[in-house]
Computed example of a mutant assay.
Amino acid sequence: MRTIFMALSFVVSGMALNAQSGVYLTQTDFENNRLTYATNAVSDETKIRFNEFIEKPFIIVKHNGEKIHLFKDEIYAYKNKNNIVRTWNFTPYYFLEKGHVWIYYKDVYTSQPKGTQRVRKYFYSTHGKGEILPLTVHNLKRSFPNNNLFHLHLDAQFRSDAELAHYDNFANMRKVNYLLEKTTTALTKK
């Protein structure tokens, strides 16, 4: 009996880790990869409608025959296939990287001379529940006012705000996080 219980607990925990969709109710759930209403197949009893296309302020979960509305501003984030989405001020942001700053992106449409074009904009927060701000040199300097070494390197290494989100293949992280890690380490060694 004990063996059956342990085998079932491994199967259930494995399903949550491999789940393609679900809800992170809190930041702790997100950091521990603990999904609520986890599902990974169309045939599961739990079905989630994320309302991304229409951008409704809530998620609809059908779980055990019951329909549950979860407001996006009352949960931490949700996972829809491979995308993790955090809502801040009723705006969805796609999670990219957790480091000294948490990096997000959002695709926006801008008007061009020949119609509209989709452009990827990058954002960040200084911690998991922090305010999400546009990823710019100016905002980073305001977020880390006492790190003068970071300020100098930002000015020297980045010609535009768009370069801040570039990926560093050697460091396996976004360049801004790598730079912030190195300058913070240099300050603490003094």
Rank of each mutant, 00 (worst) to 15 (best):
N80Y: 11
L140W: 03
G99E: 07
S9R: 01
V11E: 09
T188H: 14
K121G: 07
D161V: 01
A7I: 06
K81Q: 08
L17S: 09
L187M: 14
M6D: 10
Y94A: 08
M15T: 06
L179A: 05
I60H: 00
I59V: 00
R118V: 09
D168M: 04
K175S: 14
V85R: 04
V42H: 03
S111D: 08
T184E: 14
K189H: 15
G115I: 05
Y76F: 14
L152A: 13
A7G: 13
E181T: 13
H100S: 13
D161Q: 01
P57A: 05
R86S: 07
W102G: 01
E97D: 08
F90R: 11
E163Y: 11
R34A: 04
A19K: 02
F71A: 00
K62L: 10
E131R: 08
N89H: 08
I48W: 06
T110I: 15
D168Q: 02
F30Q: 05
A156F: 08
F158V: 08
Q112S: 11
L70Y: 04
Y24W: 04
Q117H: 09
E45Q: 09
T87S: 15
I103K: 02
R120F: 08
H127I: 00
K106R: 15
V11T: 13
V101G: 08
R120A: 12
L154C: 03
K106W: 01
Y122R: 04
N147R: 01
T28C: 03
E55Y: 00
S21H: 00
T136P: 11
K62I: 07
K189D: 10
F5W: 04
K98G: 13
D29S: 07
L154M: 02
